[in-house]
């Protein structure tokens, strides 16, 4: 089990880097936003992983049961709000993409650069 103790972190690194790759290598703006969502999810995974305690349960105290072990509630709170904030900011990004599509007729980054240099 020792070797698996870090597996969550490796999965986090892999997902984070896949999202990062999509953000920097893809020129389609929606693909970039999808990459950003993946990146964000990876950060959520890191936080939740850190809060896990061996043999713990979700931090909901059951009446009459003593010496329970609970996982750390603090990272969970931070991530819970971050998910909802994440979707609102994602909506903002998508709204800007919609406007770019209307103004430039394309959502490919390189074509937008070309159009910018022409004018």
């Amino acid at each position: 089990m020792e070797i698996l103790g870090l597996y969550n972190y490796w999965a986090y690194v892999a997902v984070l880097m896949i999202g990062f790759y999509a953000v920097i290598a893809k020129s389609n703006l929606i693909k970039k936003l999808i990459g950003l969502s993946i990146f964000q999810s990876a950060v959520f995974l890191l936080y939740i992983t850190m809060g896990k305690v061996d043999g713990g349960t979700a931090p909901i105290i059951q009446a009459g049961v003593s010496d329970q072990i609970f996982s750390n509630p603090l990272p969970q709170v931070l991530i819970l709000t971050a998910i909802v904030v994440g979707v609102s900011t994602l909506a903002l990004g998508l709204a800007i993409v919609v406007r770019i599509k209307e103004s430039y007729g394309t959502i490919e980054e390189d074509q937008i650069h070309l159009l910018d240099h022409k004018s």
Partner: peptide, 9 residues
């Protein structure tokens, strides 16, 4: 990972 609230969200 014991984060029921986060999973629901």
């Amino acid at each position: 990972l014991d984060a029921a609230d986060v999973a629901l969200t």
